[in-house]
């Protein structure tokens, strides 16, 4: 494998990259099991196989930078540094969840790390990221905003409205296309005209394609360039990262047709981003195998702790269903005490 990305990042940063990729992998592996055992209601969409793309992008951002995501939702906040316990509790629907059990897997958000929310609507969070960029511009606070979206969302109109607005206003926004090559079962090339990265030039912004999205440093380098451009006031960028999801679109999904052939899958499995980076770290003498083994064991414990955190967290009280609809009142819809949906008794 060629080695195009610079390998000169601080050692701690590189180890943190591996740690966060492992967190995503082990967290999602555990979540997948819990879905199948009925311990997580509904389903989840894992980022297994896409960890380099997620972490490379997240770690190119600063702590106070903003980020929005999509239904493949756990990797983004984990990649941005969110603690695992409240994320796991959210997947289970517990009161200790990062969204108090009101969002679930599809709608994770951890504002403390700049995660402004994942979105169950394909492409729906892209305009939110543009708005976060607008805030940064108006308030001149030097913050950058990044929108994660898939190859499927690349064909939503709101992306192009957003790219145009961000372009014409020179907003500090990065449009990051996670091209895992399938919109559920639909191969991207069958529904996508031209190359997604090329669409950047139509809006006067750089459009970069990271062919090796399994290399966390390659992704980090491309996104860092976009972040630098954004912070310099030069406006938005489009970065398309080619990657692959190892699991089914969602956990537990059983389709009659296998839309991905075995050879393709095997090729991508052989390019596991976590294995590749581990080998790379050892080869370059950044870390010893034992050290990385210890890191892996550490992350497994973190995931165990996250599940324990979730287990000990109670389910929310029913009254919580009426909280946080509005800022100023639990029952702001109708001010009358006995209105049809103003009291808890009425919905029981």
């Amino acid at each position: 494998m060629t080695d195009p990305a610079p390998r000169s990042l601080p050692r701690d940063t590189q180890l943190e990259m591996q740690r966060r990729m492992l967190r995503i992998r082990r967290f999602d592996e555990r979540a997948s099991k819990m879905v199948k055992r009925g311990q997580i209601p509904g389903t989840v969409h894992t980022s297994i196989g896409q960890e380099a793309q997620v972490v490379g992008a997240c770690m190119a951002l600063g702590d106070t930078d903003f980020m929005t995501g999509n239904h493949r939702s756990h990797g983004h906040p984990i990649g941005k540094g969110a603690p695992l316990g409240p994320l796991m509790a959210e997947l289970v629907g517990k009161s200790g969840g990062v969204c108090q059990g009101k969002g679930g897997s599809l709608h994770l958000a951890d504002f403390a790390v700049g995660s402004l929310g994942e979105s169950g609507i394909v492409g729906g969070s892209i305009p939110i990221a543009v708005g976060a960029g607008l805030s940064s511009k108006v308030l001149a606070n030097d913050r950058v905003s990044l929108a994660f979206f898939g190859d499927g969302a690349a064909n939503q109109g709101c992306l192009y409205e957003g790219m145009n607005m961000a372009g014409v206003w020179k907003l500090p926004v990065i449009f990051l296309c996670e091209n895992n090559q399938y919109a559920l079962s639909t191969p991207a090339h069958t529904v996508t005209s031209g190359v997604i990265a090329d669409r950047g030039s139509g809006f006067g912004m750089p459009g970069v394609r990271v062919e090796n999205g399994q290399d966390v440093l390659a992704v980090h380098e491309a996104v860092s360039a976009a972040v630098q451009r954004a912070r310099a006031g030069d406006g938005p960028s489009l970065v398309e990262v080619i990657t692959y999801r190892y699991n089914e679109h969602s956990e537990g999904l059983r389709l009659g047709v296998d839309y991905r052939n075995a050879q393709e899958k095997a090729q991508w499995l052989a390019r596991d981003p976590i294995v590749l980076f581990r080998e790379d770290l050892i080869r370059r003498g950044v870390a010893a195998a034992e050290e990385l083994d210890a890191l892996e064991a550490d992350v497994l414990r973190e995931v165990d702790d996250a599940v324990a955190f979730s287990d000990q967290s109670p389910y929310p009280e029913l009254s919580v269903a009426f909280d946080d609809l509005y800022s100023d009142s639990r029952f702001a819809v109708h001010r009358f005490r006995d209105s049809s949906f103003g009291t808890l008794e009425a919905v029981r």
Binding site: T68, G131, S135, V138, L139
Partner: peptide
């Protein structure tokens, strides 16, 4: 012009960006 912003005719992103801006300090 920093505070009076003439937009493109793009209602979806006008509304969405205003929401995102509101969530982040404006």
């Amino acid at each position: 012009r920093n505070r009076i912003r003439n937009t493109p005719i793009s209602e979806e992103v006008i509304v969405g960006a205003a929401i995102g801006a509101a969530m982040t300090g404006l």
